[in-house]
């Protein structure tokens, strides 16, 4: 497990710009896979749905229900594409690292992009910024600002801290789950090649079990991330 990460410091000679190439690559790969799958699945749509369209419509209904649970459908309708992208992207990202972990020259290249704290925190931060953006857009600046001092003015610091902690918990929850899953997958894989050939067979069963569980975790985490994002969103865009 003592693999490193392909980090490049001082990218383009800019001192503060560093990049983890594997995360960046996996991020782009994940986006591409999600995009291609989604576009393939929604090709030649029909009024009478068949096969893959049924599945995609089930996904849409599922996300619709997530949004409906946290806010009124009339306000929540706008967020349907966003929530759909979130849940599909995070789910695909989560299971990318479950299927296989690619190591090249001592560095991990193929893994879940969501097993990188930088990526998940960025996603979480992006979502929190989106909630505030839509809060201003849908309720107006005055009402939005007022929501920070409701019900009493001295709640303001707590509300500000809440924005920060929401970002942290949202990002780290996803990262922790997926990262831990990959560590254990790596440990089991390492165990298979320790000494005896018998260990390979011994490692097979926990490997299968943990991969199955990781798939489950990946789905659950995608669901949780999307649900919480929508709940935070509802706090900002709905009048209380």
């Amino acid at each position: 497990m003592d693999h490193g990460a392909p980090i490049i410091e001082n990218l383009f000679g800019i001192p503060w710009l560093s990049i983890d190439l594997s995360s960046a690559m996996m991020m782009v790969v994940s986006c591409l896979i999600v995009f291609i799958l989604a576009v393939l699945a929604t090709r030649n749509l029909k009024m009478k749905p068949t096969g893959i369209q049924n599945f995609m419509e089930w996904v849409v209904d599922f996300v619709k229900k997530i949004i409906n649970d946290s806010m009124d459908w009339r306000t929540g309708k706008v967020f349907l594409p966003l929530a759909l992208t979130l849940i599909t992207f995070i789910f695909i990202s989560n299971i990318l690292g479950v299927i296989v972990i690619g190591v090249y020259d001592g560095d991990i290249w193929w893994k879940s992009p969501t097993a990188d704290a930088g990526v998940t925190l960025t996603l979480a931060g992006f979502m929190i910024i989106m909630t505030n953006f839509y809060g201003v857009k849908m309720r107006g600046t005055k009402k939005y600002a007022k929501s920070f001092v409701k019900p009493v003015f001295f709640i303001l610091p707590f509300k500000l801290i809440e924005e920060f902690t929401n970002t942290m918990t949202l990002g780290f929850r996803l990262y922790g789950n997926i990262f831990a899953g990959e560590i254990l997958l790596g440990l089991i894989a390492e165990m298979a090649f320790v000494t005896l050939p018998i260990a390979f067979i011994g490692a097979l069963i926990p490997m299968i079990l943990w991969q199955g569980f990781s798939l489950f975790i990946g789905a659950i985490q995608a669901f949780i991330f999307t649900t919480l994002s929508m709940v935070y969103m509802s706090h900002k865009v709905e009048n209380h």
Partner: peptide
């Protein structure tokens, strides 16, 4: 090694690719 701290480059790549993904999928 794995956490590796927050890299500005990754943040930019994540933001750009995810935003692009949202719009393209939509």
């Amino acid at each position: 090694a794995a956490v590796g701290g927050l890299h500005i480059g990754n943040i930019i790549v994540t933001l750009v690719s995810f935003t692009a993904l949202i719009f393209l999928l939509k």
